[in-house]
Design a protein around this nucleic acid. Sequence first.
DNA 1: ATGCTGACTATGT
DNA 2: TACATAGCCAGCA
Length: 125
Amino acid sequence: MAAGRSMTHAQIFAVVRRIPRGRVATYGQVAALAGFPNHARQVGYALAALSSDAPVPWHRVVNAQGRISPRRDDPGGAMVQQLRLEQEGVVLKGGRVALDEFGWAPTRRMARSPVKASSSRSPAA
DNA sequence: ATGCTGACTATGT
DNA sequence: TACATAGCCAGCA
């Protein structure tokens, strides 16, 4: 399973699978967790390489702006992704996801820390 | 080996 | 918010 194309992709898929339901992670975040900081792009390519029915919640991965990146191979995929996210409780506002609310924090927000050092609200409903 | 492409990100206008 | 530009790197022909 896991493709078998290369370990790089496998590593990325492993991280994506760890994204809890109702939460989203950015490409850069997944890349960093996979062990490839600053390789956000590669994450996108890796996801593009897997099948739409792959055992990976690829729909939980969005870009740093909290938006769904349109794909070249399947323009409709973006719509499907949004639908799946809404099914899991992730709300898109203005075509964007509030990363400060639904952003997955495995331990601590990495670079781009959207959190404003305030009690704020909790992603947990 | 070389060159192109791409589900990205940060910055500037 | 939207668009344009530059930097990065892996996969594939």
